[in-house]
């Protein structure tokens, strides 16, 4: 963990509810799948947001406006600064991926898969991506993933774009060596049930501190009690208790 003051470089909507914020500053992130915890004026608790992309001196987060905190973030302008705790959580381990990992994201679970995808490509692996949304208006980052040169399948629950149905419908018949996934709990459960390969699942929980001190986000696993913020957010398929 490190505390960094970032300067907002960009902050713009990708869809009606999902925004992209690019931050400039040092020491962005160790591993894909980690998150940052952002302090906002007038709010007591920080807001945990997954890291979508990280460069030498920049960090990209995609966030959905769902409450007062994220609403406030959407009103911030380039040049403003943010007090951020960064390098939080364990992140994805790419060593276990095999040659053909499948990346499955749902809604705002898609962002952390982007940096993961880049890293897997950098290691000479051949990832493919399945992303699920409710409707065509909510689709984001399809072009960004395609620009990396990986196969991308988009599923929409209402059938308004791509494959009609859920990510698990798009997974049918797809061969893969391993699964990396992030998304809402019902989606994680469905991916778990629909796959016969191992994988890593990224979970979301309301957090107090975000760095393992308060036990606010504990869950039970087959390997004992874990803190989603510190021992997670990524859990191995084999340890998950639903």
């Amino acid at each position: 963990m490190k505390q960094v003051v970032y300067t907002i470089r960009e902050n713009a909507p990708l869809t009606a509810k999902v925004w992209r914020m690019v931050l400039s500053g040092e020491c962005p992130c160790d591993r894909p799948g980690q998150f940052v915890n952002i302090r906002l004026a007038g709010k007591f608790l920080r807001r945990p947001i997954s890291v979508c992309d990280a460069g030498e001196d920049s960090l990209t987060i995609l966030y959905k406006v769902v409450g007062e905190g994220t609403e406030q973030m959407s009103g911030m302008r380039p040049g403003e600064t943010l007090d951020v705790l960064t390098r939080l959580g364990n992140g994805y381990d790419t060593a276990k991926s095999g040659q053909n990992p499948l990346l499955v994201g749902g809604g705002v679970g898609v962002p952390p898969l982007y940096l993961l995808c880049k890293q897997l490509l950098g290691e000479g692996k051949k990832p493919r991506v399945i992303m699920g949304f409710n409707t065509s208006d909510e689709v984001f980052y399809e072009d960004e993933f395609r620009a990396l040169g990986v196969p991308v399948t988009v599923a929409t629950a209402d059938g308004s774009y791509g494959v009609r149905g859920f990510v698990t419908d798009a997974m049918k018949g797809v061969d893969c060596s391993y699964i990396y996934t992030c998304g809402p709990l019902p989606m994680l459960r469905a991916v778990y049930a629909a796959s016969d390969v191992s994988g890593q699942y990224s979970f979301e929980e309301r957090m107090g501190c975000g760095f393992g001190a308060c036990m606010g986000c504990s869950c039970k696993t087959k390997y004992g009690n874990k803190r989603i913020c510190k021992d997670g957010p990524v859990l191995e398929k084999e340890e998950i208790i639903w």
Partner: peptide, 23 residues
Amino acid sequence: RFGNPTPRIAECPSGMLNAVGLQ
């Protein structure tokens, strides 16, 4: 003790609620 089920934390004006339950 594992403590209480989650969510255990809530934002409040100038503070927070916790119901960790003595984990």
